[in-house]
Amino acid sequence: MEPVVATKKDIRKIKPEKLQEFLIEAGEKPFRVKQVEEWLWKKSATSFAEMTNLSKATRELLEDNFTINALQVDEQQVSSDQTIKSMFRLHDRHLVEGVLIPTDSRMTACVSSQVGCSLACKFCATGYMDRKRNLDAAEIYDQVVLINQQAEENYQVPLSNIVYMGMGEPLLNYANVLQSIEHITSPKGLNMSPKRITVSTAGIAKMIKKLGDDQVKFNLALSLHAANDEKRNRIMAINESNNLEVLREALQYFYQKTRTRITFEYIVFYDFNDTLEDAKELWQFTKYVPSKVNLIEYNPIAEADFKNTEEDRLDQFARYLENRGVTVNVRRSRGKDIDAACGQLAIKQK
C-alpha cells in the first residue's frame, strides 16, 4: 500500500496567531511572524528563499512545513488597443482570467473571484461555464500583483484601479473577496485606497445588505441591464429570486450604512433594452439611491445571439438620462479582439 503523503498547507491560509504559535513552538522569536507576513503580503514573495532577513534555518523550517500556492501566468495576449489578457494557472491546475486595461487616465486590473460561475447570465461567456470553486483570498491578491507587474513592465505605470468584474460572482465568495481587499488595501499589504476598488454583483440582495453591515469602504456596482423584472428575468436568472424591488431595498440599506454612491452597469442590447421606454425605467430606478450609470457596449459571444445597439440609439438613450440629471459614462469595449472585453472571459486557449 502506498504511503499517504501529507500535503503542506498554504502559509497564506494560516491566521497570523496560528503561525506565531507554530514559530514559537519551533523555537523562533514571536516577531518572526511579522517578518513572514510582510514578505507574503507587502513584498508579495512567492518562495521562502526570497525571505532574506530570515535565517537559513528558519527558511528551511517554513519550507519543510508550508507552501506558497502562487498563481502562474499560463498564457498572455495583447490586444490591438494594448489591453492585456492573462490566463492564470492555479495550484490545482484550474484556470482563471484577468485583464489589464490601460487608458490615458487610469490603469485598471479586472480580476476574477471564482473558477467559472453559477449564475448563467445569458449574455456572459463565463455564465456558460460550470462553477468549479471559489478563489481564495491569496489567489485574488496574486492576480492584482501579477497584473500590476504587467502594467509597470509594459507601460511604466502602476495600477490605479481594481474591478472585481472578471469570472464569477464576487458576493457568492464573500469572505475571500473581502479578505483579498483587506490585503490589497492594508498598510501591511499593497496599501491601495479602497475607493479605487469596485466590486460588481449581478444582484445578491442579502449580501449587498451584509456589505452595508460591514461598512465596506470600496465601491459597489450592480449589473442591472434591464430595469423591469420581465426583461431582467429573461437574461439574468438571479432576478427571479432577487427582483428589482428586493434589490432596491438592499441598495438603499447599503447606501444608508456606507454613504457610497452605487454604479449601475447597463449593457445596451439592440432591440431588447435600448428604447426610450427602457431609458425611462432605468432613470426611475436610479432615483431610489444616489448613483451613476455606466452604459456598456455589448461584446458578442458565440453562445448567444444578442447584438450591440446602434450608435444613434445609444446616443439617444444616454441623452435621455443626462437630461434628467443622471451621471452617465459610455464605456467602450477594450480587448474585444482577444476576447478580453466585458462578458467575454471563458478560458479559450490559443
Rank of each mutant, 00 (worst) to 15 (best):
S44F: 10
L171R: 03
N242Y: 09
E28S: 11
K206W: 04
Q77T: 12
T260S: 14
D213H: 05
Q156P: 00
Y128K: 12
L222A: 04
Q114T: 06
A125T: 14
F264P: 03
D339L: 13
P187Q: 06
V326F: 04
E281A: 11
V330D: 02
A346T: 07
L23H: 03
E245K: 13
K132E: 15
V328A: 13
Y164N: 04
F272T: 05
P158R: 09
I197L: 01
E281T: 03
K122V: 12
R332L: 15
N233H: 10
N299E: 05
R232I: 01
N242K: 08
G166S: 10
E2M: 14
A205Y: 00
K18R: 15
I204M: 02
M236D: 02
D339F: 12
K9L: 15
V326C: 05
L190A: 04
E60Q: 15
A120M: 12
P187E: 07
V96Y: 08
T309C: 03
I197F: 02
L19V: 09
R261N: 11
E297M: 12
C121Y: 13
V289C: 14
S112P: 07
I296V: 05
D214K: 00
H225W: 01
I181F: 03
K231Q: 09
L19H: 05
Q284S: 08
F269E: 04
D337H: 06
V96N: 11
R59A: 09
F123V: 13
A227Q: 02
L345H: 05
Q284I: 07
R12V: 06
L244E: 03
L178H: 06
A138D: 14
A49P: 07
I24R: 09
P170E: 02
S223F: 02
R106G: 10
A279E: 01
S44Q: 14
